[in-house]
Design a protein around this nucleic acid. Structure first.
Lengths: 373, 373
DNA sequence: GTGTAAATTGAGACCGGTCTCAATTGGGTG
DNA sequence: CACCCAATTGAGACCGGTCTCAATTTACAC
């Protein structure tokens, strides 16, 4: 007792066995619910365990079984509500199946992600759930399969790595969002994202036989790749001459306002904006208000990500809502199946997005520049 | 090589030692950077390790050192942005110090929290970071100290448990928020929280010699305890007769609108509302708009939690912003210090909150009931 | 009462590191 | 060149479980 309160090492199977008067192996069987033990002995062992306050040492168990009942999850930034929701979904599934989650933030840096993976593998996680920092850097993930561990990607895909993935139907969602604007009469539609992709998008565009826009090589984020592709496809189908003219990648967080202002008031004279996420949307919303324009009368604004605030502004913002939580949950389910033996070929699962139409889309207004300032 | 790609167990120190032609102990020393090894041997071992693709097994290391370099973190719900931010803060600090985070969600259920703690202790975490599900249930945490592990609470405090804690200055913040309303002339000030506390608050109120409001026993959440205490103290100091009259705890998420509507239009005829968090605030905001009232002309609304949307509504909402990230970061710092030997007596650290005044507070308006409907 | 198969129990190796302790090697000094 | 002390290396125990295999007990049939 005093030993216990002094923070000493807790009781072990050997201690329990000694108190119960049986062999270590027997006590272990009774405690671990494996192998055959007579009812009488089991009870005796359990009583002994209770008396000593025995708590199984999972580290030791992992040591001999090679299984840790732990899953590694690597997200860009847990503060990002999308990742937080996906993590919650994964956590609930993992929890129900008896797994724990080791969380790492990559900060969207492939190098940081690489070390995070290394650390997690060292800790002998049974599998990994990853929102890839870059869809282009397949080399980050080979150590995982080399170590014989399964990995499931979520939210994003890695182009040249054969692994299960669960993503949202961004291409369809983007097409839908663009269509809403097109239907309202817009032709000058901008898309703003913070994705930092070095090379210009235009030169990589490839239009396939169905008139669908693809990129080669793909964009650094498969999400943005799908969205730009979907928007471009929709615009071109509607006969818009240069579908990629108003795509703005690589916006800096504190430069979004300026980017938006330029798009609206500059030569581009855009009449509507698609924000790639709610952070961009909020900056765009403020920028539009700051230059004295009104939504949807002067400018239409739509966005990905059904953030709480989009329903509370006046007007509410038309958005695409993402199945974030289910993304994480499904990825976790798939991963656990693989951990427990499933060896079917990897497939990419695509979860539908929903459009939530609110009041931020109206007909385009003729060039505004003159009336401003 | 083929063994590796077949997902076989990786190389061990013994394998490396054999290849380098030294004893296991020597290889371990060279690899683990402990003990003395000649430069020549160290190089030979490193080369061998590289050749075999050796990756240290942290589980085995934990087994013999008793240290896991892992910290358990238990939050109510990682989807809650406050917890997500605190977790990020903790994660960054932990990461820099070489620790990993095992994340659990308690769902604010003390029983779930108890099992989460049990599991984490079984995994031999070096210490725990906990946002307590209940400030009243100290018994949940005795297993931690019994196991000789340190624990640091954050966001909330546990009244009868002696452990380090990092919390925000909610009492001061609440007083400040109430004062803003009092200064604008309000006397009928409501406070709405979803905290589910069984017993009525009034009967537990204790006014100390300085005129400060305390509760005995304390409220189930020390955060709400501090806030109600702060508000009550401010109201009483301003001569408001029954400071607790419009405190509404236990609001159900989908009943917030009704609660708010009743507070405004019912007998209470409240002229201002303090929302305990941004979710309540958003419901209140909508409810107020739905009954056709305007902020701040008809009703003043203030809230805890500087959620993004509060800056984008018209008008913006006056809020108290919480140092969430720093809460987690500081808690992690303190925990790691304790893990690494610090044994100073536990203290409670209080981080300041900031008030952000926007446009949601105006002078009170005379009873509105007649003009509604 | 005896034989046989099944059930239960015990002994000890093993997982992959760390760590203690003794043995060996090496360098410097007189 | 012998001697002493420090540095380096090796052998093997240990952490706390699991698991294999052999020994022992039990149950049941004849």
């Amino acid at each position: 007792m005093s030993a216990q309160s002094e923070g000493r090492r807790g009781a072990t199977v050997a201690d329990v066995a000694a108190l119960a008067g049986v062999a270590k192996a027997t006590a272990a069987r009774a405690l671990g619910e494996y192998g055959a033990v007579s009812a009488k002995v089991r009870q005796r062992v359990r009583d002994a365990a209770a008396e000593l306050g025995y708590r199984p040492n999972e580290v030791a168990r992992s040591m001999s079984t090679g299984r840790s009942n732990t899953i590694g999850i690597i997200v860009g930034d847990i503060e990002n509500p999308a990742f937080a929701q996906a993590t919650r979904g994964a956590s609930d599934v993992a929890d129900a199946a008896g797994y724990d989650l080791i969380l790492s933030n990559s900060g969207e840096q492939p190098d940081a992600e690489e070390t995070a993976i290394e650390v997690q593998l060292s800790k002998r996680v049974d599998g990994l759930l990853i929102a890839p920092a870059s869809s282009l850097r397949a080399s980050n993930y080979t150590p995982i399969t080399d170590a014989g561990r399964p990995v499931v990607f979520f939210d994003r895909v890695v182009y040249d790595f054969d692994a299960e993935a669960v993503i949202a139907a961004n291409r369809a969602g983007a097409r839908r969002l663009a269509q809403v604007l097109l239907d309202a009469g817009h032709r000058r539609i901008a898309y703003v994202s913070t994705l930092n992709d070095l090379e210009p998008v235009e030169t990589r565009a490839v239009w396939d036989e169905h008139g669908s826009l693809r990129f080669s090589p793909g964009l650094a984020s498969s999400v943005i790749d799908d969205r730009v592709g979907g928007i471009g496809t929709a615009l071109r189908a509607a006969g818009v001459p240069d579908p990629l003219a108003f795509v703005r990648l690589g916006a800096k967080l504190n430069g979004i306002g300026r980017t938006v202002t330029e798009l609206i008031t500059g030569d581009s004279a855009v009449t509507s904006i698609i924000a790639s996420d709610s952070v961009i949307a909020i900056h765009a919303f403020r920028a539009i208000r700051d230059i004295g324009l009104r939504i949807p009368d002067d400018i239409s604004l739509v966005a990905f990500d059904n953030a709480p605030w989009t329903s509370v502004t006046e007007p509410g913002i038309t958005v695409i809502s993402q199945p974030e939580r289910e993304l994480g949950a499904m990825a976790a389910r798939l991963l656990i199946e693989r951990i427990e033996g499933d060896a079917r070929p990897a497939v990419r699962h695509t979860l539908p997005q929903a459009i939530i139409e609110r009041g931020s889309v109206g007909p385009p207004r003729a060039r505004l520049l003159g009336s401003i300032q």
